[in-house]
Simulated scan of single mutants.
Amino acid sequence: MVINKTWQSRAADWMIILIISMLSLLCIAPLWLTVAVSFSDKAAVAAGMVTWRPVGFNLLAYQKLLEDSHFFRAFGISLQRIALGCTINFVLTALMAYPLSRSVKQFKHRNVIMWFIVFTMMFSGGFIPWFMTIKSYHLLDTIWALVLPGAVPVFSVILLMNFFRSIPKELEEAGEMDGAGPWYMLLRIYLPLSVPALATITLFSIVGHWNSFFDGLILMNKPANYPLQTYIQQLVVQINMDEVSPENLRLLAKLSNKTLNAAKIIISMIPILLVYPFLQRYFIHGIMLGSVKE
């Protein structure tokens, strides 16, 4: 049955669409401005003439970026961090969430461990003990300093735990009748049925590792070990005048720090923009089911 809408309800719908469109434009505007700056001329950027379109269109910033070995080394470190960090986060989150999703009869000390986990979300040991702990394990200036301190994301554990608890108990009972053990239940029943929640925590892990810059700044003593976001945060174009050729001088005369940095920011965003569309369809479903307790 189709219900005819009144003009007031139609006006309200159009107002909501207008507000959402304006908010979307506000979100896209900084990204679009960065793209325009990366393709603009040095003088136009310095004069503040670049708005919604490039002024003096050129590809010099991207040409210079392809010659920057430090950028690609930092890019590689961030990719390595995501590969190691996401794998560790995924395994440890699943191994912790599954026993915590069991009842007290099945796991006697479940509530005690759960309180310890929740406590870590509200209180931390402090910045200095955190740094001293990592230093005492001789992890400074290694990739492990970037992935091990955040190996168990508590929010992801709670999200996946609640999702496991939403799975019908009849499946577990059927598995137990067939002689399935805990490992079989986790790997063959719970994980395959938890794709939305797993995709959500994977997205959290990827975005968290990719965007993190502060730990790289503190835990890496050598700039050569900086991940990409730390490298971008410390962006400084250093020019050795003894090694600059006439061709490079002409290039630098048309290129500014702002255009080069904008190009680096755009390139650094590409991996997340490529990954997000594939996981976004699971995001709302995983968050909704994983955040509701029975």
Rank of each mutant, 00 (worst) to 15 (best):
K222W: 08
P182S: 08
V244D: 14
G181N: 15
W14S: 08
A44M: 00
N261Q: 11
A262V: 13
A29S: 08
A174T: 02
S124I: 03
M177V: 14
T259E: 11
E173K: 09
H285P: 02
A74I: 06
P223F: 04
N240M: 15
T202H: 10
G286V: 11
K293W: 02
Q280M: 14
K135H: 13
V55W: 07
T51V: 13
T51I: 09
L171T: 07
R281P: 13
L228W: 05
M96V: 10
L198E: 06
L25R: 10
S256V: 06
P149E: 15
L59F: 15
V91L: 05
Q106V: 03
L160N: 02
E247K: 15
D41C: 01
G125L: 13
T93F: 04
V55P: 11
Q106D: 13
N58T: 08
A262M: 11
L65F: 00
A83C: 12
W7N: 09
T133Y: 12
W115C: 12
P277F: 05
V37L: 09
G126M: 00
Q63L: 06
G175T: 06
I232M: 11
K254R: 15
I232H: 14
N111C: 07
E170T: 12
W144R: 08
L66K: 06
A263Q: 04
A12Q: 13
N211C: 07
Y231H: 08
W52R: 06
R81A: 10
L273M: 03
F163M: 01
M121N: 11
L84S: 08
P168R: 10
L219A: 05
P168N: 10
S166N: 05
I265T: 13
L289Y: 14
I20Y: 07
V244Y: 14
E173H: 01
Q234P: 04
I266S: 10
T259Y: 07
F164K: 13
A61H: 00
